[in-house]
Amino acid sequence: MALPLPPGLTHAEVAFLAEMELVTVVPRQRLESINLLGGKTPPLRPPHRADLPLWFALLLKKQRRANIIPPPWLHPSSLAEIIHHETKVAPESFSDPPPAPSRADPANPGLIARRPAARPQQQLSPPFIPSCTAASPAGYLPYHWQELAEALLAHAGDDVAAAFGGGLAASGEVRGLLRDLVEVRAAKMRSSTADPDGFGGGLMSLRGVGAMELAENRGFVLGVVDGVRKIGASVEAARREEEERGEEEMGSDEEMGF
């Protein structure tokens, strides 16, 4: 009560973090490499594509110095495929996070892991592998999908429309599919409350859930889990006592055996 902010990241903070995601741009002007805290930006030479952080790409876009190429998973067919998967194929669970990048990735020919692990024995899992963030292939949602999609549609709607062939209709289609996807996944989050295998049982897999969805549902989910815990507390305590008693008896039996 002392802190006005609930635990966890707020929407604004999540959106801020999402601005570090890399997007591909086609520059219109030359720009030498800039030495930033996070590392050097690649030098921009007009016809060649380059990967920039989202905030930088949006800045250049606003100044008409670059066009943003929307990521492959934002394509209407990719989104429709994900929605189909979420509603028809696996209506109970969230769609899988992107798989680890491989050299033979058909969605990204020639693309290998962007950031090879600093320590080879270090095992990364979603959402921390590169393909979960910037280099997500089509058909999978990266961790920051909602923020990224909204930012791109809001500030680079014309690029999205142009890349997916067609005028305003294309970006409208993407927008509509995104709304559908958000609603489908929100409904899943809700219905899993009542499911004993969901977090109604005090346990739930959040594999494949995006950062923004986590921010939105954190308070509610924690409230439900806490309520279930409180209701089950007395039964749990009784069970634990029983177990302890059982163990003690076992222990005494063994001692007698010696």
């Binding site: 219905s191 009542a194 409230g223 439900v224």
Partner: peptide, 13 residues
């Protein structure tokens, strides 16, 4: 306890 838990989670959704 079992009935209450069911009530709680169904109403929560």
């Amino acid at each position: 306890a079992a009935i209450l838990r069911k009530t709680f989670v169904i109403r929560a959704s």
